[in-house]
Design a protein around this nucleic acid. Sequence first.
DNA 1: CGCACACTTCGGCGGGCGCCGAAACCTCCC
DNA 2: GGGAGGTTTCGGCGCCCGCCGAAGTGTGCG
Lengths: 253, 253
Amino acid sequence: MTSTTPISLATLAGLLADATRARFCLALLDGRAWTAGELARHAGVAASTASEHLSHLVRGGLLAEERQGRHRYVRLAGPQVAQLIEDMTAHAERAGAAAGPPTLRAASAARAMAAARTCYDHLAGRLGVAITDALTTRGLLRQDAGFALSDDGLAWFAAELGAVLPASGGRRPLARPCLDWTERRHHLAGTAGAVLCATALERRWVSRIGSGRALRLTGTGRQALSALLGLRDPTGDLADGIAGELRASAAGG
Amino acid sequence: MTSTTPISLATLAGLLADATRARFCLALLDGRAWTAGELARHAGVAASTASEHLSHLVRGGLLAEERQGRHRYVRLAGPQVAQLIEDMTAHAERAGAAAGPPTLRAASAARAMAAARTCYDHLAGRLGVAITDALTTRGLLRQDAGFALSDDGLAWFAAELGAVLPASGGRRPLARPCLDWTERRHHLAGTAGAVLCATALERRWVSRIGSGRALRLTGTGRQALSALLGLRDPTGDLADGIAGELRASAAGG
DNA sequence: CGCACACTTCGGCGGGCGCCGAAACCTCCC
DNA sequence: GGGAGGTTTCGGCGCCCGCCGAAGTGTGCG
C-alpha cells in the first residue's frame, strides 16, 4: 500500500522540470547574482512570469534572494545546489544527442566555453580538466582509490596558493570530482577547487570573457601554470583550436 | 528510429517530477528488478498508468528493462542513476518538513530502515555509517582531504574480503561518499561499497527483512564486524532501540 | 484449444500550471 | 512631487499531462 513521503523528490524535481526555471538555474551556475529582469530577458519570458518562477525556486530552497532597492538579486542557494544542477546536467548530456546546427556565434561561444569556464565556483572545460590531470600525475591529487588530495597536495596548496585548507570537517568536502560535460571527465571541485579558481581570478591567470562563464587564459596564467604544474596551455591557442577542429571534423565525417 | 532522446535538464527533471514516477524510482533504489504490476500496486495506480510511466522512464534512460515471457522487469539503468536519485532525495530531505504522524506499522518499518538498509548496491543507515566511521578511524578510509581508501584500506579489502579492487580507471569511482538521509552523514558508496555490501549478504552478516530494503544484522555479522573493525552492534538491538527512542522522545519533547 | 494473466494501446476527462498583459507597488532620480 | 524603471499581483487563457476503463496483444498453463 501507499507508505510515507515520496513527495519531496517529485517536488524538488518539479522545480527543475520547467524549461524556463531550468534556464534560470543554468545561467546562475556562473555563481553570481542576477536580477529578476536579467533572467527574464535571458530566458525570453515576461517579467511577471520570471517573478513567479523565482518565488517558486526561492521557496523550494534552490535560490537565495537579496533585495537591494528596486532590484531583486538572486543566486544559487549554495554549493550543494550548484552540485545538484551540475550532476543533473552531466547526466542529461550523457544521453543527449546533438541539438540542431549551431550558428557561428553560438559555435564561437561554445568553443570558448569548451576551452575554459567556471562551473559555479571552480574551473571547468579543457583548462579545468588539464589542471586536474596535472595535479594527479604530480601526485598531489589521488584518483585511484577515490578522490582526495594527498599530503603533498595539501602542502602544495599552502605553499603555492597560500591557502590553508581546513580539514574537511564541515559539510562541504575539501575535494570532490565534478563531471565535466564537455570533456566527459572529472575536474576538481569542492573547497580546493573553489580556492584554486578564486586564486586564478585574483592573480589574473584567467579573466572572464564578457559576462558569461567563459574564461580566457592570460599570459600570466600560462607562465604560472607552466611553473607550478609543468602545464602547457591546455586551452589551445587560435591555431591549435582551428587545427583541432579540422581534425575532429575529418575524423567525425 | 528517433535517436536517443534529446534530453535537457528540464526533461530529465520532468521524469522525476511526477509523484508516481518518483515512487517507482525510490522503490527501485533497492537495486532489484521489479515487474510493472508490482510497481503499479506499490504506487496505487492502474496498470495502464504504470505502463506509460515506465516507457517514459526507459526512453529517458533512467530505467533498463528486460522482458521475460509476459513479465516486464525493470530496474535502474545503473549506479549513476541510483546516485542521481540518492543525491536528489538527500537534497530534498534536507529542506523537507516532517510529514504527517506516522502509523505504528510505518514507524516500525522506518525504525528498521534507519538501523540498516541497502542504498541501491551498498550499505546505509546506522550500520552503513558506523562501518564507514570505523573504516575511517582505523585509517582505512580517508575523509580529511576528499574521500578515498588508503593503501591500508585497499589491503584490508583484499585480505579480509578477498576482493581485489581495480584501480578506478573506469567510469565508476572506487570509493565515493553518499549522503545518508536518516543519519545526515556520509556512508561508503562506489565499487568498494558495493563489494562490501555484496560480501555482507553473501557471508550472511546481514539478511533482508521481507522484500524491502531493510536489513537485519545477524549474529555472524556482529562477530565479523567486531573482529574485523572492532565494531559493536550499531543497529541497536531491541532493548537499545526502545531505550534510545525513549531518550530521544524525552529530549525532543 | 481455451482460459487466465501481464501488459499495452487508445479515447476521454479533469486538473494543474506556465504564459501573458494590465494594473499596482516600490524605489530612485531629477 | 512627478516620472521612469524594476518588480509583483491578479485574472484569464490554453495546453500539457496524469489518470482511468475498455479493448487489444502476447504468453503461459491446463
